[in-house]
């Protein structure tokens, strides 16, 4: 009976390495089975780059870093985690792991695959500061309560709102929505993109004020929020 209960695991080759799909069941069991299977085939697998599809499992940072360390001790590299859970995805992203199959660096801007059904009405709420190296990609709006530091990026198919200082790279309307806007309490991005337009904002001095950037006749325009209200 126990045999039937055992979670299944599949390994297949993909362009960037090996894709391992884990089965259902308690995470401890799945994890142990995974390590056993890896150990059995270690000679064959050594040096491989692994992408792990964890399905519906929700992984915290401790579990994911343990996973990565166990693999790295066996000479395997964990380079990405596929998941149905947004929590797990964001954990993977904070650990610097990929969360989709083809490498983001080789993707062209117009082809950002966003693996949730596009909906203009959903928003991702991020209540922390995005530091250099973190990347948020979302089909919908993105709201950050905190700063977006230089070296961080946000790519959203909808609007981007930052309740804080926006200094990183931001792309609103990434799937071509020209009505998308970017708002921030202090709008000072390294680069600001809306749909297909790219703007490099000039360095400004003086007191920062809340601003909103949008497309006007194909040009990115930033206006002070106070001026708009008048």
């Amino acid at each position: 009976m126990a045999i039937e209960m055992q979670p299944k695991m599949q390994i297949k080759g993909v362009r960037d390495g090996l894709l391992v799909t884990l089965g259902e069941g308690s995470w401890e069991d799945v994890f142990q089975l995974f390590l056993e299977q890896i150990d059995q085939q270690l000679e064959f697998l050594r040096g491989a780059r692994l992408m792990l599809d964890v399905g519906n499992h929700v992984l915290k940072a401790v579990e994911m870093s343990r996973l990565r360390d166990e693999l790295s001790e066996r000479g395997l590299q964990l380079w990405g985690v596929l998941s149905n859970s947004p929590t797990t995805e964001s954990t993977a992203q904070t650990l610097g792991l990929a969360t989709r199959l083809s490498k983001p660096t080789t993707q062209r801007r117009e082809e950002i695959p966003i693996d949730m059904p596009p909906s203009r009405d959903t928003a991702l709420m991020i209540h922390r500061t995005l530091r250099s190296g973190s990347s948020v990609k979302y089909a919908g709006h993105v709201v950050v309560i905190g700063d977006v530091n230089p070296g961080a990026e946000i790519i959203a198919s909808g609007n981007v709102v930052v309740w804080g200082r926006l200094s990183g790279v931001v792309h609103a309307g990434a799937e071509g929505d020209e009505s998308a806007v970017v708002c921030a309490l202090n709008l000072a991005p390294t680069q600001l993109r809306i749909a297909g337009s790219i703007a490099i904002p000039p360095k400004r001095r003086g007191r920062p004020q809340p601003e909103m950037a949008r497309l006007v006749d194909g040009q990115v325009v930033a206006e002070a929020w106070d001026d708009r209200r008048r």
Binding site: L95, R131, G133, N149, P150
Partner: peptide, 15 residues
Amino acid sequence: VRDADRIIGLIEAEE
């Protein structure tokens, strides 16, 4: 400072 920011993010991620 940019690298420090990245490393602080990684330290937070490792709890």
